[in-house]
Amino acid sequence: LQNFEALMALTNLAGISEQLRSKIIKEKAVPMIEGYMFEEHELIRAAATECMCNMAMSEEVQKLFLAEGTDRLKLVVLYSGEDDPRLRRAAAGTVAMLTSLHPKICQKIPQATTHWLEILQSLLLSENLELQHRGAVIVLNMMTADKELAQKLMESETFEILTVIAKNEEDEKKRAVAQIAQKSLTKAVEYELIKPNVSAQSE
C-alpha cells in the first residue's frame, strides 16, 4: 500500500510541471518507477504505468523510449492490450503521447511486438471511449509518420474499423474519436492508399 501511495504521489507531481519531472529524474526515481511497472500486484503495476505516462512528458524520459535495445516501448504497447482498464488507459496514453511527439517511435512500434496491430485494433474496438480515443490517436500518429506504416494499417482490418468509427460523427460522445478516425482515412486518401469515396467523408 505504501508503494501504491508513493507512486500516486509521484504521478501527481510528475503531472504538474517539467521542473518537478526533472527533480524526479535527478532523484533517480525513473528506474524505480520502471521496476514497479513489472510488479505482479495489479494496482501497483497500473499506478507505476500512470506515473510513467506523466513522466513521458519529459524529454529525458522520451529519450529512454527512443533508445535502441530496450523493451520500454514494447512493455507499454503490450500493456495497451491488457485486460486491466486502468493499466491499458495509462499504457495507451503513454503510447499516444510518445507517438504524437516522435515519428520515430511510430516506426518502432511494429518492431516492438508482433501483436501491435491486434492491440491497436482492440483499442479501436473498445467500448471504453477513453481507450478508443487513445487507439485512434496512436493510429493517426502512425498514419502521419510514415506511408509504409499507413499502408500496413490500411491493408489490415484497421481500415474497416476506422471506416465504421468515422461514421459516428452524429453521436456527440463519439464525435471526437470519429473525427480522429476520419483524419486517418483522409491521410490514407492523400497517400493514395484508398479512394476518396471509400473514406466515409461527411463533407
Rank of each mutant, 00 (worst) to 15 (best):
M143S: 05
A181C: 08
L149A: 05
N168F: 12
L101D: 11
S199D: 12
Y191D: 14
Q201H: 09
H115Q: 15
N197I: 10
E160Q: 12
R21A: 00
A6L: 13
L124W: 05
E148A: 02
E5D: 13
S184M: 04
L66K: 14
F38M: 07
E190M: 12
I194P: 00
M143N: 04
L193T: 05
E68M: 03
E60A: 12
V30P: 00
E39L: 06
V198G: 02
A91F: 01
A96M: 07
Q121I: 08
L162N: 03
S80L: 01
N54G: 00
E60P: 05
L149C: 10
L20R: 15
E59S: 11
F4H: 14
E34Y: 05
E27F: 04
R89E: 11
S17I: 03
K63C: 08
S122G: 01
L13R: 15
E203F: 08
K28A: 10
V189N: 07
Q111D: 13
M143K: 03
M8Q: 15
S202T: 09
E130V: 09
H115M: 15
A92S: 15
I16A: 06
V164I: 12
F4S: 07
P85E: 08
W116Y: 15
V177D: 04
W116T: 05
I138V: 15
N197Q: 13
V164R: 14
E68R: 10
I119C: 09
K173A: 15
K63H: 10
T163I: 01
L149H: 06
M52R: 06
K187P: 04
K174Y: 02
L120F: 08
S202L: 00
L140P: 01
N12Y: 11
P103A: 08
I119N: 06
I24Q: 10
L1F: 06
L98F: 04
V139S: 04
A29D: 07
Y36S: 08
E192G: 00
K74I: 01
A48R: 04
L162Q: 04
V77R: 02
A112V: 00
K74C: 07
L43C: 07
Q2K: 14
E170M: 10
A48E: 02
V30Q: 01
L75E: 09
E50K: 07
H102G: 05
L101G: 01
T144Q: 13
A145S: 15
T11Q: 15
A145E: 04
E118Q: 14
R21C: 00
E192C: 03
K26A: 12
L129V: 14
T113K: 09
S199M: 03
A47C: 02
Q107W: 00
A176I: 12
N197R: 06
S126W: 10
H41E: 15
H102L: 03
G69M: 01
E130Y: 09
R134V: 03
N168E: 13
L66A: 09
Q132H: 00
E40T: 11
R21T: 08
